[in-house]
Each structure stands twice: as structure tokens, then as C-alpha cells.
């Protein structure tokens, strides 16, 4: 009887594991098939080099670069903001703050990642953009700067929390060595702790980048919906994700070329996040080998 119970449980666990794998394979298949049929109509060279993206207009252009530049620009702004802030927080919490303070503040910070992104989107549009406009006169109502900054706020806990974990995992004996040699807290933090935790910190940054690239609502609401090959943060842009939302919500006919652009854009996004996740997985594996 007991043996049967064990067997049932084992099979149930195996089944749930298989489901997740099946779903992943399904997603990749659908993406690839639709993208493949897209690329049978549009040349991949045009896709990668055409500076314009106008699939919904009569004069159609399918240059992913203008969407990609929107994604990279907003992500870059987010990362440029979140890395210094998130890293400072993690160093403060791990090396300076009293234990009790860390225990309270860390979950609070992680709440930042739990705020629905649509709320962030409106925060960017209604609060941050008007605020920035008061000292950047040329800033349009939709722009990558405020979308990027707010996205930066959203990903701070990814960096601060995971980096803090990495710093905290550095053996205490190294901290003692650093202090025993007469290091100040600052020297201990930057000359010993951060280098020792560097792989974990890099992983946290890569995951944050990956999150920023995939982020949809904030950029769809606050960055505008105008595909444009530019690195000017004050003008409206459109990211890959925002475009996918735009087309999915509109009345594009199923199986049309316009419809298939979603999958071409989607697979581009997938390639990026997949690469980033692979890199972070590799680094994490190396990191584990080092300390075990």
C-alpha cells in the first residue's frame, strides 16, 4: 500500500516536471514556426538592417532595429540607474547596517518588485515625466528617460537583494582577515567583499537586465508607441514588448503578415533573454564550484 502511494506521488511529481518542459518547448515551437513563416515573406537581412518599422502602414518596413533600439535604450537607462543604487544598498545592508535593520529593510525593498508594473507605468507617466519636464524643457510626454528611470526603480530589488545575498555568502573569515589587516569598512567592502562576491553580483545584474528587456507595461505606458531608431532619451520610442502589446490589442487579422510580426519581434526578445540567462547560469555554476 505504502509502495503504491510512493509510486503515485513520484509519478505526479514527474508529470508536473514534464508539463513545464512541454510548455517551454511548445512556446519555442510556436514562436519558431510563426517566425519562420514571417521570414519566408520578409528577408532576414531587411529585418536586421532596415532602419524603419512600419508593418501597420501601407508602406511597410520591417526593420527590428528601431524597436530594438527602444528596448536597449530604456533598459540601459534602467540599468545605469539601478546598478549604482542597488549595489550601494546591498553593500550598506551587508557590511554596514545592524542585523536587525537588515532584517526589516530587505523584505520592504523586495516589495518594490511586487508592485504591479502598470502602477509603475502610470507613476512614470503622471509623476516622473512632469517632474523631469520642469528642468528638461524639451522632454516629450512620452519618453524613454522616465520610463527607464522608473523601470530602474522596479529592478533595484533584483540587484540589491541578490547582491546582498552574494555579499552575505562571503565567508566571515574573509571579513575578519580584512579588518584584522586594518581595513576600514569602506576598504573591506570594495577591496575584499565586492571582488569576492563579484560573480553573484554580476549574476544579479544580468538577471536585472533580462528583467528590464522583458518589461512591458511601464514602457508601453510611458515610453510611447513610436518605433524610432534613436538613442535620444527625451523623445517617444517603442520597445519590442510595447509593440507586441500594441498589435495584440489591435484588430490585426489573424495569420496576416502584420500578425506574424509579433512572433518575429518575440523571437528576437527571446534570443536576448535566453542568452542573458545562459550567461548568468554559467557564472552561477562557476561561482558554486569556487565556494563548495
Amino acid at each position: 500500500m505504502r509502495k503504491i502511494k510512493e509510486l503515485v506521488i513520484e509519478r505526479a511529481l514527474l508529470f508536473s516536471a514534464l508539463i513545464t518542459i512541454a510548455v517551454t518547448i511548445g512556446i519555442i515551437l510556436v514562436l519558431s514556426i510563426e517566425a519562420f513563416s514571417f521570414f519566408s515573406e520578409v528577408s532576414i537581412i531587411d529585418f536586421l538592417t532596415d532602419p524603419e518599422w512600419t508593418p501597420l502602414f501601407t508602406n511597410k518596413h520591417f526593420g527590428i532595429l528601431s524597436l530594438l533600439s527602444g528596448t536597449l535604450l530604456t533598459s540601459f537607462i534602467a540599468i545605469a540607474f539601478a546598478v549604482p543604487v542597488g549595489l550601494s544598498i546591498s553593500i550598506y545592508l551587508s557590511e554596514y547596517a545592524p542585523k536587525s535593520f537588515r532584517r526589516t529593510i530587505k523584505p520592504l525593498l523586495e516589495l518594490l518588485a511586487a508592485v504591479p508594473t502598470v502602477v509603475y507605468g502610470f507613476f512614470a507617466l503622471m509623476v516622473v515625466t512632469p517632474f523631469l519636464q520642469s528642468f528638461i524643457p524639451g522632454l516629450s510626454s512620452f519618453n524613454s528617460l522616465s520610463a527607464g528611470l522608473v523601470m530602474g526603480i522596479m529592478i533595484i530589488p533584483y540587484i540589491s537583494s541578490l547582491s546582498e545575498d552574494a555579499l552575505h555568502a562571503v565567508p566571515n573569515s574573509l571579513r575578519e582577515a580584512a579588518y584584522g589587516m586594518g581595513s576600514t569598512r569602506l576598504q573591506n567592502s570594495f577591496k575584499v567583499m565586492v571582488p569576492a562576491a563579484s560573480s553573484g553580483i554580476i549574476v544579479s545584474i544580468i538577471l536585472a537586465i533580462s528583467r528590464a528587456i522583458g518589461e512591458t507595461m511601464i514602457v508601453a505606458i510611458a515610453a510611447g508607441q513610436q518605433p524610432r531608431l534613436t538613442f535620444d532619451p527625451t523623445v517617444p520610442v517603442e520597445t519590442i514588448t510595447a509593440y507586441i502589446v500594441q498589435v495584440s490589442l489591435g484588430d490585426v487579422q489573424h495569420d496576416s503578415l502584420e500578425y506574424k510580426t509579433i512572433f518575429a519581434a518575440g523571437i528576437t526578445l527571446f534570443v536576448f533573454t535566453f542568452l542573458l540567462n545562459t550567461i548568468s547560469y554559467r557564472i552561477r555554476k562557476k561561482f558554486q564550484e569556487k565556494y563548495e
Partner: peptide
């Protein structure tokens, strides 16, 4: 100066380990 129970060199080169105390000064 202090020497600890478990050897605790920094995860740096031999040279950097010995030079550490001087460099932070």
C-alpha cells in the same frame, strides 16, 4: 596583527595578499 584559526587568504593573487595591508595604507 592577527592570524586566524582557519587560513583565510583573500581570493586574490599571492602578491596581492601580501601587499594588501600596505596598499590600503
Amino acid at each position: 596583527g592577527m592570524v586566524f584559526q582557519k587560513p583565510n587568504p583573500f581570493p586574490k593573487s599571492i602578491y596581492e595578499n601580501v601587499a594588501y595591508g600596505l596598499k590600503i595604507q
